[in-house]
Computed example of a mutant assay.
Amino acid sequence: MDSLWETIEKWLKDLLIDGITGNLSGMFDNVNTQVGKIAGDVGMTPSAWNGDIFSMVRSLSETVIIPIAGIILTFVMCYELIQMVIEKNNMHEIDTWIFFKWIFKTFVAVYLITNTFNIVMAIFDMSQHVVSGAAGVIITDTNIDITSVVADMETRLGEMEVGTLLGIWLQSMVVGLTMHILSACIFVVIYGRMLEIYMTTSLAPIPFATMANREWGGMGQNYLKSMLALGFQAFLIMVCVGIYAVLVQSIATDEDIITAIWTCMGYTVLLCFTLFKTGSLAKSIFSAH
């Protein structure tokens, strides 16, 4: 009877050990893939990330939005001219130079609208250069291999009781499900940022049409701040990944397998949370007065 129970216990332990090692071996694969793609994705300009989408957005902006921006510019510059004329004692003192000033401001406004995409892309080219420079400094080895973190894992598992192994197996299942969710979160942050860039860029001529007027110019200035925030959000993401890489590499070999598993997952949760915060952090930096 004892030998039968020992046989069943050994079978259960082998089954649980195989299940645990199987869960842990592929647990971080999706996260490793997504994190590894971050540096490449955020370092791309909108035109390099997806040329077809960029061409579509540029075409829509030039054929649909620029005519609307032209109408807005006409209104803004007429309003600007009226302001300049009545500014001097209700038209009793009118200097001819204000008309040259108005013509110059109109020329600048038209130039900004017609070169909107070049100006916006220059912002992302600048931020991409910063990201490329940061990539050479920041540690890029972000892969988590739990089997290498926990040395002699199978040997340690073999020394445990069936109840303990069952608990580890259940926790590995929960952590594995969580890691899939975190992998999806990383995907959403990176791809969501690029979609936000495309959508914001498509309307660029309208805020640019208001920049020649003091009262309406705040719209264009806020737009430029938003573009700078989106561009340099990539740098903050790279810093975030660099911190994550340092934390991952600092995981020490632990006698407690569960501690190592939850530590790795905790770092990944921290990465996802910080990635979500980079957008609002960048906007708060560039919108600060």
Rank of each mutant, 00 (worst) to 15 (best):
I72T: 13
P46E: 05
F232N: 01
Y198M: 04
N143A: 13
Y79L: 09
V110I: 15
G218E: 14
Y79T: 06
N30Q: 13
V248Q: 00
V57S: 04
V130A: 13
N30M: 05
V57N: 01
V31Q: 04
I53D: 00
G133Q: 11
C78P: 06
M77P: 03
V31P: 00
P46K: 02
S55A: 14
L165F: 03
E87G: 07
I20R: 00
W97K: 14
G266K: 07
I38K: 03
F187Q: 07
I53N: 00
A282I: 05
N118Y: 15
N32G: 11
N30D: 11
N143I: 15
D145G: 10
Y191T: 09
L170Y: 10
T210Y: 02
S284T: 13
I168W: 01
V131K: 00
R214N: 08
Q221K: 14
K277A: 15
G217H: 06
D29F: 02
N30I: 08
F235P: 03
S47L: 11
I237H: 00
W169R: 06
M1E: 08
M27Y: 01
I146Y: 00
K101S: 11
G279K: 10
D2H: 03
Q171M: 12
I146W: 00
I20T: 02
A234N: 01
I190P: 06
T74G: 14
D141W: 06
I138K: 02
L157F: 07
I123H: 03
K283F: 09
W169Y: 14
I261V: 15
S226K: 14
E215I: 15
I68N: 01
Q171H: 09
L281Y: 07
E255G: 12
L166G: 04
L73W: 04
V108R: 11
G26H: 07
T116Q: 02
A48G: 08
M121S: 13
I53G: 00
G136M: 08
A234Q: 01
I181P: 02
T259M: 12
P207A: 02
G22D: 14
Y267C: 03
F75K: 02
T201L: 04
N118K: 11
Y198W: 11
I68D: 12
E255L: 13
M27N: 02
F100P: 05
V120K: 00
L203M: 12
S280M: 06
T74W: 12
T178I: 11
S250W: 10
I123Q: 10
D14G: 15
W102T: 07
W262D: 12
I146L: 12
V85M: 10
T253F: 10
S59E: 13
M91S: 10
L24F: 01
D29Q: 07
I72R: 04
L195T: 09
I8D: 02
T7V: 10
M27H: 02
L157P: 00
T21R: 03
V108Q: 08
E9Y: 09
G133T: 03
M44I: 09
N23Q: 14
L166T: 08
F75M: 11
I257D: 03
E62Y: 11
I285H: 08
F104Q: 09
F100S: 10
L24N: 05
L177N: 06
